[in-house]
Write a protein that binds this DNA or RNA. Structure first.
Length: 563
DNA sequence: GGACGGTGAAACTTCAGGTTGCCTC
DNA sequence: GAAGTTTCACCGTCC
């Protein structure tokens, strides 16, 4: 292969797509670091891999090996993505995108800052927010796929990326390189991105869901209550300054106030608006009022679903599907072409049974398929499918899965709160249990085991399979047996803490006098219910106290602000 | 002649992001 | 628009 021809002109180097490897190697050979920006996750991984392959020798091999191991062990068992990243890390090259877990991202970021990692190939995640400067920035793609085909990224974003070059206080210069294919393209890029004007920042206040949320929270905090205060507030926003059309904004605001009233989140008297107790809670939960209303409207039906003697896994699926339909779960997992048939038949089999019925005027069919795919993924998580299997089956990544799980957990929490407010204690307990299952990704039968410190879904399943099903089983079982199941280190820790035997100088000591620091609790199925009951009772008590105080304050005619 | 494996061209598919929200120990 | 993946036709080899 010929050497790359690199022509320097202004701030742009003309080269070919393949030559980013040479550009990178040139820089790291001088002991400096490189950031490479790509337009897709796949591409950022492939780029990091290509660079890693081209690197023949690394400094700090031992430290990189340790880091590579940490990356690999950040998920148990490691996924394909973990293995790919760990392999790249051995050469000091890494990729960074939303598919990485939080832990992996932090490891990549901190070790790039410390200088151990020399190259990060990333999607635009790194351009915004994170302060990770490097001597050289390579913008491999300045176009990105959108609904209208490949489009130039915004000038502002280009500047964000290019602006990562140079490390203030450490170096006096930095270099940004953008890869183009022709002289004409080079001219266009210089004109648009280097000398062109960045886009104006526009207010999104008038976007209805946003406006609805903020309006409710402003009223709930008693920041604006009267019609005049509301008008005055919006008159002074960036939106009003930019668009000037206040009448249209006021029209929207008062239409939304009407909706919030219908939802019973606010009430009004003589053009004075106050949030109801429910409205305040919705605002505190930071939940979109439409979602809150959607939850509340369907509470009875959901409660019915679980009031039977025994509920089925299909009932749980219905609940998952119901929550998945909340706007906060958007964007949902995309349905691939090869999966369309699966979801079409799923919809024809189960569509009518779901709590949320399909309305073609509200949602398109593709999105409907996505609600089922997302529900399937969440369902697989709580029946203990491994992350690797889930990622492989649904073509997704651990990072995206975690993100969706945390969103889902928050929505379940909101649902649980509404159940409590409506005194549906049985239903609220059930959601609490489901939240434990989502937190750990486990079936109901091992909930009690994952409540023990140091026991996650993998170890809990191993214990359960070995007939060690409860806290007292752990206490009763011999250290040797425990060691066989979950390994020496964890077994020792558990026995030291909770067992009637502990390990000293590699010898098992039997005792009943060792001071135990019990950080764990035995929780059987029945006990989970009981604990939840106690907890609910306690919360109910607290809630009643708050209400009493609130009434007292209100009767004293003092402005009560629910913080 | 049929089964199998390797190869390469053509057709098809996919493509970024990730706050905050809550609770408890 | 580009890169990656899948599909398919074709060819050579082996039994």
């Amino acid at each position: 292969m010929n050497n790359p021809k690199i022509i320097e002109s202004n701030q742009i180097l003309r080269t070919t797509k393949e030559n980013f490897v040479d550009l990178t190697l040139n820089t790291i050979n001088k002991g400096k670091q490189v950031l490479i920006f790509n337009n897709s996750k796949n591409s950022s991984e492939a780029t990091a891999e290509k660079v890693a392959i081209a690197i023949k020798r690394v400094e700090n091999g031992k430290e990189l090996e340790i880091l590579s191991n940490k990356i690999l062990k950040s998920l148990s068992p490691p996924t394909k993505q973990c293995r790919r990243l760990a392999k790249c890390i051995l050469k000091g090259s890494a990729f960074h995108h939303s598919g990485l877990t939080g832990k992996q991202r932090t490891l990549v970021e901190t070790n790039f800052k410390s200088g151990l990692i020399k190259i990060i190939s990333s999607t635009p995640t790194l351009a915004a927010g994170l302060n990770l400067p490097a001597y050289k920035v390579i913008i491999k793609d300045y176009k990105r796929f959108s609904n209208r085909g490949m489009q130039d990224i915004p000038v502002l974003e280009f500047h964000q990326m290019a602006g990562r070059a140079g490390r203030p206080g450490k170096e006096t210069t930095g270099r940004s390189v953008v890869l183009v294919k022709s002289e004409d393209e080079k001219k266009r890029v210089i004109k648009k991105f280097i000398f062109g004007k960045p886009e104006e920042i526009l207010s999104k206040l008038a976007v209805e869901p946003t406006l609805k949320m903020y309006l409710l929270s402003l009223i709930a905090m008693d920041m604006i209550n009267s019609k005049d205060e509301i008008k005055d507030f919006f008159k002074n926003t960036l939106y009003a300054k930019q668009y000037g059309d206040l009448e249209e904004l006021y029209y929207k605001v008062f239409k939304i106030l009407q909706t919030l009233k219908t939802y019973k989140f606010i009430d009004s008297q003589d053009d004075y608006y106050r949030a109801t107790r429910l409205g305040k809670r919705v605002s505190e939960l930071y939940l979109n009022p439409d979602t809150a209303n959607y939850f509340l409207e369907n509470m009875e039906e959901l409660k019915e679903l679980f009031s039977k003697e025994r509920y089925s896994s299909l009932d749980t699926y219905k609940l998952i599907h119901f929550v998945t339909n909340a706007i906060e779960m958007r964007p949902l997992f995309r349905v691939l072409k090869s999966e369309e048939d699966i979801y079409m038949s799923k919809i024809s089999d189960l569509g009518d049974e779901m709590v949320t019925k399909y309305d073609p005027f509200e949602m398109d069919y593709r999105e409907l398929m996505q609600t089922f795919k997302t529900s399937d993924i969440l369902q697989d998580w709580i029946i203990e499918k491994s992350e690797d299997d889930i990622c492989e089956k649904y073509k997704t990544t651990p990072g995206e899965l975690n993100y969706k799980l945390s969103n889902f957990d928050w929505l379940l929490y909101c649902l649980e709160q509404f159940a409590q407010l409506q005194k549906m204690h049985f239903f609220s307990n059930l959601i609490k249990k489901l939240r434990i299952r989502f937190k750990h990704g486990v079936k109901e039968e091992i909930i009690s085991l994952v409540s023990i410190k140091g026991i996650g879904r993998v170890r809990a399943r191993k214990l359960f399979t070995a007939s060690i099903k409860t806290y007292s089983d752990i206490k009763k079982v011999s250290y040797r047996k425990l060691e066989e199941v979950i390994g020496k280190a964890v077994a020792k820790k558990l026995k030291d803490e909770i067992g009637n035997e502990y390990v000293e100088n590699d010898k098992i000591v039997y005792t009943s006098s060792k001071p135990t620091q019990i950080k764990v609790r035995e929780v059987s199925h029945e006990e989970v219910d009981e604990m939840v009951q106690v907890h609910v009772g306690y919360q109910k008590e607290q809630h009643e106290q708050i209400i009493k105080q609130e009434d007292k304050i209100e009767t004293q005619n003092t402005l009560f602000r629910f913080m």
